[in-house]
């Protein structure tokens, strides 16, 4: 009997198995995204053919290998500009950008900034593992202070970027942080994000046992997952003051919806002013 998973229609199943390491959180992030997409398709908000996925380079960016939508796997950090171009030419499409913190917040940081400033109609999913995973564990702008990485053998001298605080200062319509340790909340945020006009951004805290976990003393995937789970604190509408991620073992990482507004979106402004 040919048993197919109900979400298989959204996957290029001939490319499976995927490349992600055992214990990696990206799989949970992608499956949550697919469930959220499936619910929106079932509601008729958009069709399967109207979804486009764009990614840059990195572990998370490999998601477009497997997503059975019109998709583009482009250059490092430039998924957002590609997606903006696509949205401008095909405004009827639901354009989803999926990438890691290195791709979206580091090399692509400036593009993110201006996409947020313009409130471009995109769903941006940033899987944050706080490290450059694919390239072997180099420090990232999202790496918490003091952490040992392959490029910070004495510990990280730098403060981490708080992407939630950064984007909250701009014009995004939706800004949430979720964690793969709480997939039901993650799915809910992705579902909400997919229903928004303007820029909807979901940061997804995700364990990378192979590289990041090893550096912080949690090489075992289950131990790292449990550690992350114990640190996550859910608040419905947390204050921005609580959005820093320090990874102090006694400090919480707060997940929740930080911004949920309905400013006029980029495409709506273009429609109003005329092309």
């Amino acid at each position: 009997m040919d048993v197919r998973h109900p979400l298989d229609r959204y996957l290029r199943t001939d490319r499976l198995p995927h490349i992600w390491c055992p214990g990696c959180g990206i799989g949970i992030a992608v499956s949550s995204l697919l469930r959220a997409i499936d619910r929106r398709v079932a509601e008729g908000l958009f069709t399967h053919d109207e979804v486009a996925a764009v990614s840059g380079i990195g572990c998370t960016a490999r998601a477009t290998f497997y997503l059975n939508f019109d998709s583009a796997h482009v250059i490092h950090g430039r998924a957002i500009p590609f997606a903006i171009g696509l949205k401008l030419v095909r405004p009827n499409l639901k354009v989803i950008v999926i990438g890691g913190d290195g791709d979206i917040a580091a090399i692509g940081g400036n593009h993110l900034l201006h996409a947020a400033r313009r409130n471009v109609d995109l769903t941006v999913v940033m899987v944050n593992n706080m490290i450059y995973g694919m390239t072997g564990g180099q420090v990232a702008p999202t790496t918490p202070p003091n952490v040992y990485t392959t490029t910070t053998p004495s510990g990280n001298y730098e403060y981490a970027i708080n992407i939630v605080k950064l984007l909250s200062a701009l014009n995004v319509n939706y800004l949430a942080r979720a964690s793969v340790t709480h997939p039901h909340i993650l799915e809910r945020y992705l579902y909400t994000a997919l229903g928004k006009e303007g820029l909807a951004f979901v940061e997804v805290i995700s364990p990378c046992p192979e590289v990041f976990g090893r550096h912080i003393g949690y090489r075992d995937p289950v131990e790292l997952f449990k550690k992350f789970k114990s640190m996550i604190k859910y608040e419905e509408r947390p204050s921005l003051d609580k959005s820093d991620i320090t990874l102090n073992l006694d400090k919480e990482v707060v997940i929740g919806e930080f911004v949920n507004s309905s400013r006029e979106s980029f495409i709506k402004i273009i429609d109003r002013l005329g092309r």
Partner: peptide, 13 residues
């Protein structure tokens, strides 16, 4: 093109 239902994959690799 995107949006025509072909499930195009634009690949830089």
């Amino acid at each position: 093109c995107f949006g025509e239902g072909y499930k195009v994959l634009v690949e830089s690799l």
